[in-house]
């Protein structure tokens, strides 16, 4: 944790920490405190005074069908984003890993979409699936399917899931590939000598050895789907139609900025804070395990 020998200086360490601590207090702890404080009040309709309601905002939220369905939306969204992105990335990584020569260019081609912002990913997919001019709706129309995600909630959800999952493929691919490459060849060869087929080897040896990577990515992807996909949702559907793609993070924004319901937005912030806290704990328990691994 610390060095055997340290410098003796009374004020210098505080000075060195000051910038980070000041920014942290002003832009992290103060707002978080505000959120907790505000979550106990409701402003009157004219914004002139506020009234203390204790846990009222939470009670109201937890009985609000829109908020509860937002939980469900987030769960479905996160589940599919994680599933699609991870399985597709694993498939690509397994194939790339099997290529002995020339996997470098393949890797490069698969890695660079990492740099695309979620919001830009949203714009790209929005364009591809634009109901009137998009290329894919046109092909779908040829086989008799009428695509319009601006009206159909299920299609909207599909689209944001695809866009969000697409953006995350590169990341998962890189970690899966690194995980696969760290599996000693001798283990695979031993299994091959034992006569195990490729799928058998994959199922019984590679996949279990890849478990730490998979679990790590699982946590990262859930965090991503929860908190970093705002740009995707905002550009493609803005939470619609009829709130069918309003995930929790989007709802905090929508209620706070669009709806100006500060008490509710603050209460939602507090709930999200608890979720992040839990996810961080999970992540850290896992990292701890990885250290002892």
């Amino acid at each position: 944790m610390q060095k055997r020998v340290t410098f003796n200086n009374k004020w210098l360490p505080y000075l060195l920490l000051a910038p980070q601590i000041v920014v942290t207090i002003v832009f992290f702890f103060w707002p978080a405190g505000q959120a907790i404080y505000q979550s106990a009040f409701i402003p009157d309709p004219f914004g002139l005074s506020t009234q203390f309601v204790g846990l009222g905002n939470f009670e109201f939220l937890l009985s609000d069908p829109y908020y509860l369905s937002s939980f469900g939306t987030t769960a479905i969204f996160s589940f599919f984003v994680t599933l699609i992105s991870m399985s597709f990335a694993l498939w690509l990584a397994v194939m790339t890993d099997r290529v002995i020569k020339g996997s470098g260019p393949y890797r490069t081609l698969l890695v660079w979409p990492y740099a695309v912002a979620p919001a830009i990913a949203g714009v790209l997919w929005l364009f591809m699936f634009n109901p009137s001019i998009g290329i894919l709706p046109w092909y779908l129309a040829q086989v008799g399917y009428d695509w319009n995600h601006t009206l159909n909630g299920g299609e909207a959800m599909t689209l944001v899931i695809l866009a969000a999952a697409w953006k995350q493929i590169s990341y998962n691919f890189l970690f899966f590939l690194a995980g696969l490459q760290s599996i000693p060849r001798s283990v695979i060869e031993a299994a091959a000598i034992d006569g195990a087929s490729f799928w058998k080897r994959f199922r019984t040896i590679v996949f279990p050895l890849l478990a730490p990577t998979t679990f790590f990515l699982l946590v990262v992807n859930v965090v991503y789907a929860f908190f970093e996909t705002f740009g995707v949702i905002h550009t493609i559907t803005a939470g619609g139609p009829q709130q069918s793609t309003t995930i929790l993070v989007y709802k905090v924004y929508a209620d706070g900025f669009v709806g100006q319901d500060l008490g509710s937005s603050a209460a939602q912030s507090v709930i999200l804070l608890i979720i992040v806290g839990l996810l961080t704990v999970v992540q850290f328990r896992y990292i701890e395990r990885r250290v002892h691994y």
Binding site: F29, Q34, A35, V252, G256, A266, G277, T280
Partner: peptide, 16 residues
């Protein structure tokens, strides 16, 4: 601060 992404504390951070 790991636990406090900006998405979570949007409104109060904006206010600050």
């Amino acid at each position: 601060t790991l636990m406090l992404p900006v998405e979570v504390r949007i409104v109060p951070t904006y206010a600050v």
